[in-house]
Design a protein around this nucleic acid. Structure first.
Lengths: 151, 151
DNA sequence: AAATCAATATCGTGTCACGATATATGTATG
DNA sequence: CATACATATATCGTGACACGATATTGATTT
């Protein structure tokens, strides 16, 4: 049956995936803690990032933020509510389409975000090699693991 | 048209980070949906993955899972409770140390996990290039952006 | 044996994402 | 141009879940 080396068989992919998710989770934890220490809820940080980091020519509406955060509209509305309440963000009326709310990061928001961005870049600089490595291993396995599909 | 390139100034790092988090979030959403469609809560999937994907020689306890998931102990206990209740996982007594609970994925759990692993490998195979690319860009920027600026 | 440490468990609380639904504005169609 | 439909945002109630504080049991040390 399984008289095989420890790192082989169907478990190999699981090990690689587990390692990848572990590294990923560690980064996310770092990010969450960094945000909290900066006085932001992790999701508020993500919202500010997507609003401030949007391309110049796009209208940054609630819908846009929802898509970038992969959230439902209503969840995003609530996130914006909370962020606006804390002065990180502003809703501005769109003269073209009065249904829409244009989102603007306030000075306070930009300040916090800028600090977080630096920290994240530094952390990612360390993490990137391990993450990339883990990814490559999985990609390599992906081909050979299309056998035991229990469809 | 701009005489300056669209991607310049202090916003450059924010744009890169935003793009990276967007790709990352898309993967996480895929993973969450895949888990739910397979009948698992996303976190249950992660728990099973870390338990089944652990190295051979390590004792897979609650503490181990907590560390791999970057959760507090009590959160992990509850996650294990929910998973055990659904027959995905089992607690087994550790004869050496009776405080510890050894975690074992059930046959049912392994089956679901195996299917998810295949899907994830395939998805990561597509995502990996974009994610790696985004990471490289950030790493490149990290050096020059060790300060917080407001435009 | 007492004190201390370690692993797991329990309980109450707060955050937040969601589905369902509502309202207002824009767009298309007869 | 009135009516139907689509789109953007907002509201409300619900549930999952992560956490701090605390408890309990078993190991370790002195």
């Amino acid at each position: 049956m399984d008289n095989q080396p420890a790192t082989s068989g169907p478990d190999l992919l699981l090990k690689k995936l587990a390692e990848f998710r572990y590294e990923l989770r560690r980064f996310l934890l770092f990010s969450e803690c960094a945000a909290l220490e900066a006085g932001l809820q992790p999701q508020q940080h993500q919202l500010l990032l997507q609003v401030a980091g949007a391309p110049e020519n796009t209208a940054v509406t609630i819908s846009y933020a929802a898509e970038r955060l992969a959230l439902k509209h209503n969840s995003t509305v609530e996130l914006v509510d909370r962020s606006e309440r804390e002065g990180l963000l502003e809703r501005r009326a769109d003269t073209d389409d009065k249904r829409r709310a244009i989102l603007c990061v306030t000075r306070k928001g930009r300040l916090v975000l800028g600090r977080l961005a630096g920290d994240h870049a530094k952390e990612l600089n360390e993490l990137a090699p391990r993450l990339t490595k883990a990814l490559k291993h999985i990609s390599f396995d992906a081909h050979r693991s299309n056998f035991a599909e229990v469809r």
